[in-house]
Amino acid sequence: MTLPGKRLLLICRHSPYAGQLSHGALDFALAASVFEQDLTLLFMDEGVWQLLPNQQVDGKSIEKTLDSLPLYDFEELHVDLGSLHSRHLSITDLRGSVTPLSAAELPAFLDSFDQLISC
């Protein structure tokens, strides 16, 4: 299937284990990759908890899905620095390869995409 080349941004705003949406958002990312869409991931609000390393859970781990993202050509993840700080987290608490975005950088970053999908 050939699709018009739009830049998509998926905003992951839900905590990893408070429901299905965190998994649902990443499922969308994987589907977008299969269809060769240009998709970027941004974690904000409660979604930043998905980026903590060494998650030990019963059932399906978000961390494992995030680990698999390079296989789908997602090399870089983005995180909203304000969401981190308001939760007393810093970039060093997170897994590797996460690019922080300040409140000043965020508007232009969001504006650089054709579609925003918030899950």
Binding site: P4, G5, F28, A31, A32, Q115, I117
Partner: peptide, 21 residues
């Protein structure tokens, strides 16, 4: 339908609006 249809819509439409959290 599968998620591929949503991906296609995101590529083809002018706006994609999300409702609900």
């Amino acid at each position: 339908a599968g998620l591929g249809l949503l991906v296609a819509a995101a590529g083809e439409c002018d706006r994609l609006l999300t409702f609900g959290t």
